[in-house]
Each structure stands twice: as C-alpha cells, then as structure tokens.
Amino acid sequence: MTGIIGVLSVNIVESVQLSEIFGDEAARQAMADFGEAADDLLTRLLAQHAVIDQYGSAADRRWAACFRVLSDGLPRDAREVAEAIEHAGRNLIRESLLAVFGGATGARITADLSVFLMSPETGERDVKACWTQWTEDQLRSQPQRHVADQAGSSTDVTAILTDRCIQTYLQPIVRVSDRAVVGFEALSRGPEGSPLERPDRLFDAACAAGRTVDAELLCAELALERTKDKLPPDAFLTINLGPDALTLAADKLALAGRPEVMIELTEHLPLNEAEGFVEVVNRLRTLGIRLALDDTGCGFADFDTVRLLRPDIVKLCITVIRNADKGSHFMAAIRESAERLCKLGCLVLAEGVERENQHAALQGCSIELAQGWLYGKPEAVESVLR
C-alpha cells in the first residue's frame, strides 16, 4: 500500500448535437448507456485498488471514482501507476464511445479521462468530504488532453492494413548471468517516414479507427512470417497481443509447428476478466505456444493474474526496474517480488535495463532474463537475422 489517494475522472467535454442526431429520448438513453459503460470502465481500471467513493451523472456528463493506490507488494511508484491507468483508460474510452454512439457519431465526441493524485497528507475522512470539488478544481486548472478521433486516422490505418505496410523490429532478450542472447521480442512500426511510423501513434490511430485487433493480428502475422526458420538455434520469439486478439490467435495465426514462439499478453486484466482467458491460454499451449505476461507491476497484472494464467515468463515493467539502483528499500522489494514469481514457476524478466548499475543490481535477485537498451536497441528484422 502506498498511502496515496487518487481520483479517476471521465468527462464528456464536448458532444455533437446528440438530440438532433438521435432525438431527445434516444439521446438521453445513449448518454445513460455511456454512463453504464463509464462505470464499468472505472471498475475495470481500478480493480487492483481500493475505491473509497464514486460519483456519476449522465446529466453532468461526468463520472469519477476516488481510490487508494495499492501495490500488492510490488515496488510501484504511485505516479507511474496513475500514468498506466490513464494510458489504458484513454484507449478504452474510445471503444466505449464507438460502442455506444456508433462509429461515426462516437468518433466525433470528445472526452477527457484523467487521473489526479492528492497530497500524501490527505486523510481518507477529509477526502470523502471534498474530493468531488477538488477534482473539479483540478480539471479547471490543468490543460485537458481530450480523447477524440484522429483526423484521417481511419483512412490511413485502413491503407496500412490493406497494403500490409508494417515494419517488424526485433529487440534481444538476454540471460542476466552472462548476457547471452536467448530470445527476441518482435516489435512493430508503421510505414517508414509516415506520421504513423511510431508504434504508439500507429496503435492509437488503430484504436481510434476501431481496428486495434486487426492491427495486432497483422503485426503478429508478419512477425511470424519474417522469422520462420530464421531464428538462432534455441532462441525464442515473443509476439505482443492484447486480450481480444489473444482469443483469436489460435484460429487466425500460423502457430502450429512454432514451439519457439511465446505470446506476450500486453494489456493487463482485472482478475475477474483474466479468468475467462484460462481456456484460451490452455488451447494455445496444446499448440506448443507459451505465454509471457508483460509490464507486471505498472498495469493490471498482479500476483493473482500470475497464479491464474501461469505464464512461462513474467516481465517486470520498466517502471519497476527503473528503481533497481535507487537503494536497498527498492532492491529488497524487487527481490521479494521476483522470488514470489519464481515460486509460482515463472521465469522473471527485467524490462527497460539501460544502465550498468541497474544490471549489477539485478544480480542475485532471482531475475534470470533482461531486456533493454543496455543489451541492444530494436533493429529491423532483416538486419538482426541476416
């Protein structure tokens, strides 16, 4: 437990003239439906934390929850937890807008999803009396980053997916003890020199266009094609898929005969949703495909998720490893987390290792694998496997 209290706020900032489009009654119902979607979103994003109080009003077009940040023993920083919640929420709220209001109208509605952290000295009793007004003050005083469709993104994404204009990069994964390369993570970028070359922009645009799953499956398909029979002996390959794409992987991807492939689950799920993926993961294992759990420690993945899905590799996220060289307190927490994961039968991988002192700090911590710029930056697949 960090002792920090935060607020997650969802606000329809500017809507199209819904009454003119749907009629008054249908517009009210649509906003009520979005309110239910917003409540579900708050519940999903805060599943690992302790909700103190909640507010929702379709008339005000605003929904919010006050929560205490919990850590489950992982060496998390409250600010980084808040950023992870906000990042995931900004993608998910797009899906809610499109689902409730339709692809055309939903894409034209702007909304704001923000996470604010209160002062560590704020007591829970004080919070209950003032948190809604405090949140309004924060929203007024900070510049808003509205969630809206990107101009032209749907057309651009459709063209990229149709023409299969995805670049595949590989980043090495090493053994901590001797830095030997034992595997690679497949990463994807948009067309070289285009506005969507950066992966964050590519997938943000795919999300805004409602094509996230299509984009993830195409990236995985191309990574499989471009690495088949070309990896070094005994090297494994991790391929990133979100939960929706993961459910389709066994049917949509050429995974048979690829025992070196490991699927990396990249969006972290509250436990009540992760339970539905046990059968999906087991089916992949019958094909010889293993599972890695990405970014454990800064998203939704926690020890309960690990116990349920039994991944072969658990990747401690960069926000955890960033603290590896910051003193004995952080190092003890990382060591304890790694030992708990090893007892669950997982290999532990440290992501985002950038400095020699971070690598040195990982020695003797039950962390067998590592990845980061210290060992190698992502390079085009053709260069790596030439």
Rank of each mutant, 00 (worst) to 15 (best):
L224K: 09
P233D: 15
L341T: 01
K343E: 05
A256I: 05
P195K: 00
Y169T: 08
S57T: 04
A107I: 09
P232D: 11
T162A: 15
L374E: 10
R290K: 13
R28H: 10
G73S: 10
R175Y: 02
S328G: 09
S366V: 00
V16F: 08
I93N: 08
G242W: 08
R198L: 08
E354G: 02
A250M: 07
E95Q: 13
A88K: 08
A30P: 01
L170E: 11
P243I: 00
Q142M: 11
P243L: 00
L74W: 12
H359W: 14
I367M: 09
G297L: 04
Q358A: 06
A370L: 07
F203L: 11
A361E: 05
W131C: 03
L218G: 03
P270G: 14
E221T: 09
D295H: 01
L271N: 13
A361R: 03
D304P: 02
E121S: 13
I334T: 03
K343D: 05
E36A: 15
R201W: 04
R44C: 12
R310S: 13
D33M: 02
T296D: 05
E95A: 15
H359C: 12
I367E: 03
V348K: 00
R386K: 14
D137C: 06
D178W: 00
Q29L: 03
R285F: 05
V306F: 03
A107G: 15
D200E: 12
I85G: 04
